[in-house]
Nucleic acid binder design. Structure first.
Length: 721
RNA sequence: CGCGGGGUGGAGAAGUGGUAUCUCGUCGGGCUCAUAACCCGAAGAUCGGGGGUUCGAAUCCCCCCCCCGCAACCA
């Protein structure tokens, strides 16, 4: 069973931002640990990843920054690749979805599914921006509300009066992208008929023994009933819908969630080409002619579960069905395998708070690597992986784990054995003669380690695997304490030599067992031991000493050792304090909670986001209908039935009324109490999730999305004009 | 009654019917080969709360509370 070829994937990072510790802990470090161990164990494994470079978010961002999407993805692809390399994340290939191979692969898959009737086409009318040359989502259309005359109503609804609108209802509609007047055009998209495929998917999922968080999520989707999903978009950035399929393909691209997972396939192809055997990718993706199935494992964060457990498998099923239907004898294609495991991780918090890149609450990979080696970071993340629930990364914890476990237990144990050998055994491995019970027990524990720890890796219980590895060094320390070579040196020299011989064998074993977690440390340890011939954990192979060899004595008697030294440096207080300070500073500059006044806050770094363009000119008659009043907030509390809403009682002088506002994630109720704010008082009341909102409180929104109160000294009820 | 995951000594975790385990931290002791490291011992948990099933419940059933994610909502 371990002989089945293994393909591992890590979620493709989206190429519009840099890498942070949360990403690493979710889909990359776990996969790296898993894959390195499998490679050491001699497994035939390929690990693919790459940048996801398509999608509307990148296209829109390029427009806003007045640059090309290609320029954005080029920049972040290079950054991501470098950050991964810095952390020792050893993919076999790191590709990108803008590559030619990927375009061909995803188009060809699309075409064959389409040809076999695997898609359903559905037509609808949508607004089209003739200037920008693309279709617009409703919210990218603004215009004047036919109900209240508000001039910045969106295509789906008016934020002023609450009317639900269709883009067609707007007076003077314009595109937020180009300002052009949108046209109505018909558009047809290709849908994957998930509803129809549900029985197949359910049957397939039913046989799985995946993590509870994954299965729970998937079952929930199935119970709710799957609906068909569009696999194409009207956009000018992405893999074009292949020409030649039945239907209008102009201006249409594949939906990112259709093309990105196929990236796993295309990147495997690119890997195979680089290996000099272009057809070799099939070995890891398709059922072999002899019937053996490769294993496919997706490492992802919990936010990607539905795509990897339902949508992508459905795509592969559709492709397999298409291959069957084609019945093309000339090119009989073998079926794709479906994922055998999807070990999705939960999320990593930072210092007790959720990560938030916009609020500066994140540890960026390059910053962390500027301050620390990759290994200590890898270790601390690995022992605190969010495997079963969200985990918290703190710098205090990082320092503590690295110092008291990696340095004190592992590093110091090796240092004890090596320096003792240097001082009292001529820096060579003594011969084991007439071992004691303690010696035998220590060697037995070492012998059992590879299988036991290997099982933890195999089951993707990575925290456990790492803890068990450290446990070997802990046993080593106990063993040294028990056998007391510093005493037997004077009373029973052979006993001392036996102790050192055994301790050194344990070190040698650790030189392999530590490799998946802290490859740099493991390499240095092997150098100090002068232990050569261990196979690489960075690419698959069977040459040299492997995982299972870690359990047996690897050092011959008389073997000359290298130069002992400090194996793991401690993390100094100042270093972690500097990181905490960095985080604090950045968060203070970005945090909406920080009570900085306008005066002192003005010194803060200016965000790079451009100002929103000025809206179209209006005439006084359009402004006049608004009746705005000063109101004093006399009660503020969360909406009982909505996560983002606050409920206010506002005293308008002549009456007190209830107003709802979607600011819960920006502002704390207690900070708002007693404030005098500006209220749009003649807005038509509307009920939202069970409570009526009678007016609208005005807020100022910064360019980075922060909300601030618009306050005034006026008395409640005062007219604002 | 939206859906899913989780709540175990100060912190982080293991434990799916039979004396509550491990790591860190704390306190006490020991050792000196070693990175003020290591080893031994102790204190510390009525396993989120309440009911129930059982000879026996952290574990099974019911109700409730809290945290995280998804969905909804953001006048």
């Amino acid at each position: 069973m371990p002989d089945r070829p293994l393909l591992v994937t890590s979620a493709l990072p989206y190429a519009n931002g840099p890498l942070h510790l949360g990403h690493l802990a979710g889909a990359y470090l776990p996969a790296d640990l898993y894959v390195r161990q499998q490679r050491l164990a001699g497994r035939d494994v390929v690990w693919v990843c790459g940048s996801d470079e398509h999608g509307a978010a990148i296209a829109i961002r390029a427009r806003q920054e007045e640059t090309s999407p290609q320029a954005i993805v080029d920049r972040y692809h290079a950054e991501l690749k470098e950050a991964f390399a810095g952390f020792g994340i050893a993919f076999d290939v790191y590709g990108r979805t803008t590559s030619q191979t990927h375009r061909e692969t995803s188009q060809s898959l699309f075409r064959s599914i389409e040809a076999a009737g695997g898609f359903v086409r559905q037509t609808s009318t949508q607004l089209y921006d003739p200037e920008a040359g693309l279709f617009l989502a409703d919210r990218f259309v603004v215009g004047t509300c036919p109900v209240c005359g508000y001039d910045k109503a969106y295509g789906d609804q008016c934020e002023n009066c609450g009317s639900t609108l269709a883009p067609d209802d707007l007076i003077e509609p314009s595109s937020t992208l180009s300002g052009a007047r949108p046209e109505r055009r018909e558009t047809t998209h290709w849908f994957l008929p998930l509803g129809e495929m549900q029985p197949q998917l359910a049957e397939w999922i039913g046989t799985k023994e995946w993590k509870p968080n994954v299965l729970g999520q998937v079952r929930s989707w199935l119970d709710g009933g799957l609906s068909d999903r569009a696999m194409t978009r009207d956009l000018d950035w992405g893999v074009p819908v292949p020409p030649g399929v039945d239907g209008e393909t102009d201006g249409k691209v594949l939906y990112v969630w259709f093309d990105a997972p196929i990236g796993y396939v295309s990147m495997t192809k690119e890997w195979a080409e680089a290996e000099g055997d272009a057809e070799r990718w099939r070995r890891y993706w398709q059922v072999h002619p002899d019937g053996t199935e490769p294993e496919l494992v997706h490492f992802i964060g919990k936010d990607n579960i539905v795509f990897h457990c339902l949508v992508f498998p459905a795509t592969l099923m559709a492709a397999n069905r298409a291959a069957d239907a084609a019945g093309n004898a000339a090119q009989p294609d073998r079926p794709f395998v479906l994922p055998s495991n999807v070990p999705a991780n939960e999320f990593l918090n930072l210092e007790g708070r959720k990560l938030s890149t916009s609020r500066g609450w994140a540890v960026w990979a390059d910053e962390a690597l500027a301050a620390f080696d990759a290994d200590p970071l890898r270790y601390a993340l690995a022992v605190g992986l969010p495997e079963t629930k969200d985990a918290d990364f703190t710098w205090a914890d990082f320092q503590n784990r690295v110092n008291s476990e990696l340095a004190d237990v592992v590093g110091n144990f090796c240092n004890r054995a090596l320096t003792f050998a240097e001082r009292f055994c001529d820096n060579a491995v003594p011969e084991l003669v007439g071992p004691s019970d303690a010696d035998r027990q220590m060697l037995a524990a070492l012998a059992a380690a590879p299988a036991e720890i290997g099982r933890a890796y195999q089951d993707v219980r990575l925290r456990d695997a790492v803890a068990q590895t450290v446990q070997i060094a802990r046993l080593g320390n106990q063993y040294l304490q028990e056998t007391e070579p510093w005493k037997t040196r004077k009373t029973d020299e052979q006993a001392m030599r036996n102790t050192i011989a055994v301790a050194l064998q344990v070190c040698a074993g650790l030189g392999i067992l530590l490799e998946p977690v802290v490859p740099g440390v493991a390499g240095r340890l092997r150098e100090m031991l002068n232990l050569e011939g261990v196979r690489s954990s960075e690419r698959a192979g069977t040459d040299g000493l492997g995982w299972d060899d870690a359990g047996r004595p690897l050092l011959e008697p008389g073997h000359a050792l290298g130069t002992p030294g400090i194996l793991v440096e401690k993390v100094e207080d100042e270093a972690v304090e500097a990181q905490r300070e960095l985080l604090r500073t950045r968060a203070a500059n970005a945090s909406p909670e920080s009570p900085t006044t306008t005066a002192s806050g003005a010194e803060a770094a200016e965000p790079e986001t451009p100002y929103a363009p000025l809206a179209d000119e209006i005439v006084f008659d359009q402004f006049a209908p608004l009746d705005m009043r000063v109101g004093r907030i006399v009660a503020a509390e969360p909406h009982p039935n909505a996560d983002k809403l606050l409920r206010f009682d506002v005293d308008l002088g002549f009456e007190t009324r209830q107003v709802l506002s979607g600011v819960r994630e920006h502002l704390a109720p207690e900070d708002l109490l007693g404030q005098r704010v500006v209220v749009v008082a003649n807005l038509k009341p509307r009920t939202i999730r069970g409570l009526e909102s009678n007016g609208m409180i005005l807020f100022a929104e910064d360019r980075d999305g922060r909300l601030l109160l618009v306050t005034t000294d006026g008395e409640p009820g005062a007219i604002v004009k």
